[in-house]
Design a protein around this nucleic acid. Structure first.
Lengths: 130, 130
DNA sequence: AATAAAAACAGTAACAGTTACTGTTTTCAA
DNA sequence: TTGAAAACAGTAACTGTTACTGTTTTTATT
């Protein structure tokens, strides 16, 4: 792969790195447009896909049918807020013993797992109690 | 809700119950069409949604962007085969302690989790070793 | 059994998120 | 400085899904 530098791609990555939730392509588009007013949505998608392919970001499929993107590529669990929809990184170790438990009654090969925790995020929890 | 009986809906549910993998709407459509040659794809979608709404089946969002459907509604974990894409039920208890671990370093409210195990299903594992 | 309102239907158009195509601009090694 | 490769903006196309239309089926009531 022979990459060439692109300001748009930098801006997309830089924007993602500023966020702890994990925006969708559309949110990236709207924000990067402040810096590049006529950036194309296609450019956003192309670069998000490219960055994900070369491992600089993660594409996260949460179950809402819309792709989210994450500048943290180290393996980690995600939390999804059921009231605001944001996706937040969790600070916990990978539970490898899960895979062993899953393997015990199963005839195939368990290689890993993806877990999404859900509930109310810190911001939304705070809002309700106030 | 005032439901009326429908042969097409019966056929859709009956088909789902014959499967241990968890077909997409399109697969349901292709199969039910053998019995109802001019059933509409819209009818398939409408009934899958209806059955899921009344709790007779589960809608499963696996992360491939396509909805899968499951006639087993009791809570259980799923296994996704990375080579053939099929989704299989796992026979294991819900690991509630996961939620406690996730809560410990997190400021929001963890209400539950969704986990997909992935790897090679029994059929695909067998094919490779043969 | 006849009837009529509600529900479901088939067929198709519309929609959202995403990807692919076009001709133009930018990057960067020679 | 230049020219090929890559990236771009803009837009059309694609895919999974939902919504709309006029017709048929179901089912409770006669």
């Amino acid at each position: 792969m022979n990459l060439k530098h692109s300001k748009q791609r930098d801006a997309i990555k830089a924007f993602l790195m500023t966020r702890v939730d994990h925006p969708t392509a559309d949110v990236v588009y709207m924000n990067v447009r402040e810096q590049f007013p006529n950036i194309s949505l296609g450019t956003v998608y192309r670069n998000l896909t490219l960055l994900a392919d070369i491992g600089e970001i993660d594409r996260i499929r949460v179950g809402d049918g819309i792709d989210h993107f994450d500048a943290t590529v180290e393996p980690h669990y995600h939390f999804i807020c059921t009231s605001c929809g944001s996706v937040i990184d969790l600070d916990m170790d990978t539970l490898v013993e899960m895979d062993e438990i899953a393997s015990s009654n199963f005839d195939g090969q368990v290689e890993g797992h993806i877990t999404y925790f859900y509930g109310s995020c810190p911001a939304c929890t705070k809002q309700v109690t106030n």
